[in-house]
Write a protein that binds this DNA or RNA. Structure first.
Lengths: 182, 182
DNA sequence: GCGAGTCGAGACATATATGTCTCATGCGAG
DNA sequence: CTCGCATGAGACATATATGTCTCGACTCGC
């Protein structure tokens, strides 16, 4: 048996990230063409659009987890880990952010992934609160929202050519922790 | 001649805001049904989906402009005006935010509206910088992004039932100006 | 009451995305 | 070399949204 299956799936997923990032409404034919595979082949690996989106979501979550894990493994504090994580998440946003606007397939695995991400982030923020990084009177839910949306803002800055990923991450972290005041 | 045309258009636009807010991918048939109008009637007033989206965009922009104008007309400083504006924009976000994810029709009027909004906001922020509200070393483009995305974060808080619009607006403004630190 | 204009319902045609199927091809394992 | 398997190309059927058209009913101004 040839082992091309795995690599074909990977190619399709990679093409899907590229195509959907630029045009979230692209057709599966567009994805197949960009992947250099036949439309039928795409259907052999993913039963339909929803299935593909689910696979993309799980892949994106795994990429994020691995990148954050790798980057923060030597961090001494939760606060520093959150800052470092922001720096590695932001460049990946260009690949992943379209999933936020995509109509989410009603899949339990996707729901679990999102729930886990939010829960883990809330946990780390609570720990950082205990370290004194955040005002304990501010709801953790708000800091989660602000964290996510300032990452999005940073990605928009990079996309508009107004900052490098590093600069955007620094601005986002500074704004989250100290605001934009003097 | 009956004057029902204007009111019919208004009904359709209102229904479109309601329907698309909950499901950005809804069909025009859904909009017509929700408006209590025949599908053909919708096409008599709006040539197609793109035309409808353009009308929604222009309507939303006008609503925002009027609300902000009215709320800030007595403000003494640009800084205070930005804070007040944030408070009136946030509740409207529930109606308007789907337009941000909608594939934007390539219409010059829409482009002009967005350009004006960004330009005006950047101008007000520059003025507020001069008043000392923002660190002049931070790019105005970033503050624009942070302002917009913290509004979105506030709307998400409200949508999740974690805050009232007033509370969310206060959190967004506090975060923008002072961050979430102690 | 009358006519003009608008409306709701629905038939009809069209476009596009989607999903399935077939068949010849190419490539690697044995 | 030969067989097996995944593939590319493309035909085919289907579903859904879209856009146009017609027709009878309604309402308002006159």
């Amino acid at each position: 048996m040839r082992d091309t299956s795995v690599s074909t799936e990977a190619h399709i997923l990679e093409a899907a990230f590229a195509v959907f990032s630029q045009n979230p409404g692209a057709s599966l034919a567009d994805v197949a063409k960009h992947a250099g595979v036949g439309r039928a082949t795409l259907h052999r690996h993913f039963s339909g659009r929803d299935d593909l989106i689910v696979a993309l979501t799980l892949t994106a979550a795994r990429e994020l987890d691995e990148a954050v894990e790798e980057a923060t493994k030597d961090c001494q504090t939760y606060t520093h880990a959150l800052e470092v994580a922001l720096g590695v998440i932001l460049p990946l946003a260009a690949r992943h952010m379209f999933l936020a606007t995509e109509p989410a397939p009603n899949d339990p695995r996707v729901a679990e992934v999102y729930a886990n991400q939010t829960r883990d982030l809330a946990h780390d923020i609570d720990m950082a609160k205990a370290e004194g990084a955040f005002d304990p009177h501010i709801p953790t839910e708000w800091i989660v929202q602000a964290y996510d949306n300032l990452i999005y803002a940073g990605w928009a800055m990079v996309a508009a050519g107004n900052a490098t990923p590093k600069q955007a991450a620094a601005l986002a972290w500074r704004t989250l922790t100290q605001g934009t005041g003097k």
